[in-house]
Design a protein around this nucleic acid. Structure first.
Length: 267
DNA sequence: GCTGCATGATGAA
DNA sequence: TCATCCTGCAGCA
């Protein structure tokens, strides 16, 4: 299940494995049938990620756009791939292995102007940093009158953050998630950006979300933090805050749950 | 077997 | 703000 780190990691691993290969492409489910026909037998040249979007470059300037949404999932096998299921939207078969894609929100061929429209809707991506991005993020965030945790899910404010990271970054920054974004200080906005860059980078490397510092969990490496110790706030209703012992609270903002520590994250 | 839920996003009202 | 779409799985009968 995907926030930006999952997508950038998928791009990196799929590029490494499949770029340069000629692939047989089909849609066992049928819902990507005509697109699969276009890709079938072409060489995959490169894979790009921006925010939660993937762009696959195929020979002859053909671009495939994939967005996993809430449920989308890749399966990749070197050998012994299982048969596709009802949900297998797209399948690749080639010398490097087999890939299945199930449940994506988007899996479509894209013209350059359509890709441009997608990119134009996205704010700065902490895993694809460009000059001026911290300032762009701070300005976009502090312009909004909605709760800061809600603004952090707006992909135009920052691309690639999801429900887990937003709760964790508010915790680490010591900000009540309900605080209006336009009341977040410039320093705090800068801190949120730096947290996003640092933690999504870790997540991309190790393939999971860990925000609890390894030292705090008594281990040496991010990847060694035990499952139950990886997060400070997300889904920790009524558990004791790891820092202060107060009870983690839960609320809903725009139909998404968010968790916080009332002591560590004052209003 | 059914229900509800999940790291997401959109378009209509 | 709401309905809708995408899939799989845990928890329950």
């Amino acid at each position: 299940m995907p926030e930006g780190h999952t997508i950038h990691r998928a791009a990196r691993l799929q590029r490494r494995r499949f770029a340069g290969a000629r692939l047989s492409v089909d849609s066992p489910q049928g819902r990507f049938g005509s697109g699969a026909d276009v890709l079938d037998g072409r060489v995959l040249e490169d894979v790009d990620a921006l925010g939660k979007h993937l762009f696959y470059r195929w020979e002859d300037e053909v671009t495939l756009h994939v967005h996993l949404g809430l449920f989308g999932k890749f399966g990749i096998w070197s050998k012994g791939a299982p048969p596709p299921t009802e949900g297998t939207r797209m399948r690749w078969i080639g010398e490097p292995g087999v890939l299945h894609l199930a449940g994506p929100t988007a899996c479509d061929l894209m013209e350059p102007h359509e890709e441009e429209a997608v990119r134009a809707r996205l704010g700065p991506d902490p895993l694809a940093v460009r000059p001026g991005d911290p300032e762009r993020f701070a300005a976009a965030l502090r312009r909004r009158k909605i709760p800061v945790a809600q603004a952090l899910l707006d992909q135009k404010v920052i691309a690639g953050i999801g429900n887990v990271y937003r709760a964790e970054f508010c915790f680490l920054a010591g900000i009540d998630p309900r605080r209006p974004a336009d009341e977040v200080s410039a320093d705090d906005a800068d801190l949120l950006w730096r947290l996003a860059v640092a933690h999504l980078t870790v997540g991309e490397r190790i393939g999971r979300i860990v925000t609890v510092d390894p030292a705090e969990a008594g281990v040496d490496r991010w990847r060694d933090v035990p499952r139950s110790d990886r997060l400070y706030a997300y889904k920790r209703d009524d558990r004791a805050c790891r820092r202060c012992g107060d009870h983690i609270r839960r609320t809903e903002l725009a139909k998404r749950r968010v968790w916080w520590c009332p002591t560590c994250q004052p209003d």
